[in-house]
Nucleic acid binder design. Structure first.
Lengths: 186, 186
DNA sequence: GCCACCTCCTTGACTGCTCAAGTATATGCA
DNA sequence: TGCATATACTTGAGCAGTCAAGGAGGTGGC
């Protein structure tokens, strides 16, 4: 009754998901063997982001009813001149399409954190602008986000140098971020 | 007819999205001023991932009709013993929920890249297993993915050391990746 | 043997996003 | 001035994922 296929059925995790694994000195690696695998790095980036986002989403949604992407959107508005941006610019900053921005703004407009403003010189344009309420709420979210980030990159595990390196490397990969240190505490 | 608000309406991008910006020596930074901002780094990670995923999705969908997440799922199966994994293990490896895995597997099962296998010792378990076709297609996808990754981390811009550092830092952030160098070329 | 509790997986409902199509408006050249 | 082309935005449809609920099955203590 025990087929050979199930002889290996451990019910334990079947995915030893560790680092580089056995180094195949004669493997089909198209790169020089002394160079780290770029695909491996890319996949790690994606997986790391999933873990990080999950953590921020959990805290921000619980305390503020918003997701990390909501928060990031608001943060971009806060650092823009006049607290407002054209939607097309917001899309580029966030790495979304225009319709993605429209969809993302809808709930924020509904709860009064963001409002729509027309542009006097271009009738096609609709600005997304932070409301005073939006600013207040954002300051509170920012406080939480800073805490989560601080825990994530705890000084006992992350040196200033390591953090600096990571930040620089991510920037080189297209990792832009809105300036937010001018935003006062709630 | 020109309101003061629109005097600043440049129609040009209103989001100077550059690096660290002006260093606020007396800013409300809760960290020590000599330490990079962890929140900044986290936001850069998320944004960098968006850019990277976009690029992989574009190439993989155009040439192979799959997304990066499809590809990653298949890759995990390929490096598992017997080319199969329990769905709950796959969910953990990918950072998804169980239902996310169910949804992700559906189209792959439909096109014959993945099949379902029962476990002899546990009736609750349904394995996700690579089909022979799935293996062949995966090898082709892998070829493309390696190329995209190689372009993304071009040696002229990325030293082996920089890549090694990034890989290590991402690993520390929870960035796991399936071993794939044992998979032969198509 | 019984049962409380846990595990695995699926499904309905919903959210967040892209693509494609469409409308309104702006731009530049003949 | 007229018009081809481009830009900004929205909306319908569809995909990818989460949450909650539920059904089936497994485990361990009494």
């Amino acid at each position: 009754m025990t087929s050979p296929a199930d002889a290996a059925d451990p019910t334990a995790p079947t995915s030893p998901m560790t680092g580089p694994g056995p180094d195949p000195a004669t493997g089909p690696n198209p790169m020089t063997d002394s160079r780290p695998d770029p695909l491996d790095t890319a996949l790690r980036l994606v997986r790391a982001q999933t873990a990080v986002v999950k953590r921020f989403d959990s805290s921000l949604s619980g305390l503020h009813g918003v997701s990390l992407s909501d928060f990031t959107l608001l943060l971009h508005l806060a650092q823009a001149p006049g607290g407002r941006m054209r939607r097309v610019d917001l899309a580029e900053a966030l790495g979304l399409t225009a319709s993605g921005v429209t969809r993302g703004l809808a709930p924020l407009e509904r709860i009064g954190l963001v409002t729509r403003e027309a542009a006097a010189r271009d009738a096609r344009v609709a600005y997304a602008a932070l409301t005073p309420t939006g600013r207040e709420r954002l300051a509170e979210m920012l406080h939480t986000a800073r805490q989560v980030a601080a825990e994530h990159f705890a000084p006992e595990q992350w040196s200033a140098e390591g953090l600096t390196q990571l930040s620089a490397l991510l920037t080189r990969l297209g990792g832009t971020a809105p300036e937010h240190r001018h935003i006062p505490r709630p």
